[in-house]
Write a protein that binds this DNA or RNA. Structure first.
Lengths: 209, 209
DNA sequence: ACGCGACCTGTCCTTGTGGACAATGGCGGC
DNA sequence: GCCGCCATTGTCCACAAGGACAGGTCGCGT
C-alpha cells in the first residue's frame, strides 16, 4: 500500500531520491528547499526531506526561510543519514512532523509517512525512549525490572552499582564483601545478561540499544 | 488493512472490547491481566489494553506482576479513556510500546498497532508535542549533545564509539587510525568532559546523571 | 616566519578487569 | 542424605585501559 497523498521528495542526492521513489505512486522530486513553497501553494502537504544531503557548512535546513514559512502547513518527514538526537529535536521543534534515518527500511518510511499524513507525529524508537528517560527522572527502576529478572538479589545489587560506574573495590566496599566476590557476581551477571563487560551492562541497564 | 498478527484485547469493558474487535481479523479477548501470561507463552506479541478499565482504587496495571513479567516480550498498546501525561509516561516506562486514547478513531488505533508491531513506539500527538516542548524548555542547553560541544570533531567520533562500548582497537579499526591515537583522543575527551573513564563517559553521553 | 591547535603515533608503566582453575558453608527440595 | 543453587573467597594469569613521558605533520591566523 503506497501513500495515497502526493509526496514531495526533497534531496539533492540522486541515489536517495531513487530509493524513495517507492514511497508513493508518483512522487515529485525537488532538490532545492524552495520547492516547499510551490508544494504548499499547490495545496499539497506531504514531504520527505534529507537533512544531511547538503554541505555540513550550510546552516541547518530548518533555520532557513523556505522551511520556516511552510513547515506549519506541511507534514514534513525529516531524515538524516547520520541521525543525531539534537538534530532530531531541533527539526521537530521547527515544525517537522517526523524524524528518522534516511536509509531506514522503505516500509518503515512508508509507515512514518502514513502516520504524519494522519496528523500524528513520528519519532523513532531510539530518540523517543531517550526523550522518555529525560523527562521522567523518577521511575527509572519500575520499567527496567526486566534486565534484573534472571538475576539473584545479590547480583542485582552488584549489577546496579557496576552500571553506575563504580569500581569492583568500591562495590565490594559498599556491600561489605571482598572484591573477589564482586567479580564472581559480575561474572554471573555478564553470563545471564549476555553482555561482555560492565559497560555493555551499563548500557543495558540504562536502556541503550 | 487489518493487523496481520494475532491481537489480544484486554479489558473488562464489553463495549470497548466490541469496538476494538474491528482492529484485527480474529482478535482474542481477555478480561484478566493474567491473560498476558498465556498470550506470551503462546508466542504472540500484540496486545491492546485499557488502563482505565479497572477500579481506580486498584494499583496501576503496570505495577502488577503479570505486566512486569511479560511486558518485555510483548508489544503492548496501553490506552486510557482519560489520558494523562503522568499515566502515559509511567506505562511507557513500564514497558508499554504505545499510549493513546481508548476511544481514539479505530483507524488511529490500527495504525498505532501496526507501528508497535514493527518494533517502534507510538505516542499520540498531544503527549509527544508536550514532551518535545518540555525537553526543549526545561533543558535548553543541558540538552542532548551538550557533551559534544567542547570536543573537536574527531574527539566526538571517538567518544561516540567509546560510549557504545567499543574497545580502543575496534574504534581505531573503525576510524582507520592507531589504537594509540584513540587513546590520545579519549584522554582529551576525559579531560574536557571531566570524567574518569569510558563508562562515566557513556553515562554522560547517554544522559544518566 | 612563528605560534597554536588539531591530528596522529611511539614506548614504557601501573592498574583494573575478566576469565580459569579452585574451595567452603548454608539452605531448600526430592 | 544428596543435589542444586546461592553467596562467599582464594590464586594465577592475559589483556585492556589509562597515565606519563616522548615525538611528528598539517593548516591557519598574526
Amino acid at each position: 500500500m503506497s501513500t495515497p497523498q502526493p509526496l514531495l521528495i526533497l534531496t539533492p542526492d540522486d541515489l536517495l531520491a531513487e530509493r524513495w521513489r517507492a514511497l508513493s505512486s508518483s512522487p515529485i522530486r525537488a532538490t532545492e528547499l524552495s520547492g516547499l513553497d510551490t508544494w504548499r501553494k499547490a495545496g499539497h502537504r506531504l514531504v520527505v526531506v534529507d537533512l544531511g544531503g547538503y554541505p555540513p557548512a550550510a546552516p541547518p535546513l530548518w533555520t532557513q526561510d523556505a522551511w520556516q514559512n511552510n513547515a506549519a502547513d506541511l507534514a514534513i518527514l525529516a531524515t538524516s543519514s547520520r541521525p543525531d538526537d539534537e538534530e532530531g529535536l531541533a527539526a521537530l521543534n521547527a515544525g517537522a512532523c517526523g524524524y528518522c534515518h534516511s536509509h531506514a527500511p522503505i516500509d518503515t518510511l512508508r509507515q512514518a509517512l502514513e502516520v504524519i499524513a494522519g496528523g500524528e507525529l513520528w519519532v523513532g524508537r531510539a530518540l523517543l525512549s531517550r526523550l522518555l528517560r529525560l523527562v521522567d527522572s523518577r521511575l527509572p527502576r519500575a520499567g527496567l525490572a526486566d534486565w534484573a529478572r534472571p538475576l539473584t538479589e545479590r547480583e542485582r545489587e552488584v549489577a546496579h552499582h557496576a552500571a553506575l560506574g563504580e569500581s569492583n573495590v568500591a562495590i565490594a566496599d559498599a556491600l561489605g564483601i571482598t572484591e573477589r566476590t564482586v567479580k564472581a557476581h559480575l561474572k554471573a551477571v555478564f553470563e545471564k545478561l549476555q553482555v561482555a563487560d560492565r559497560l555493555q551492562l551499563a548500557l543495558r541497564v540504562h536502556g541503550v540499544r
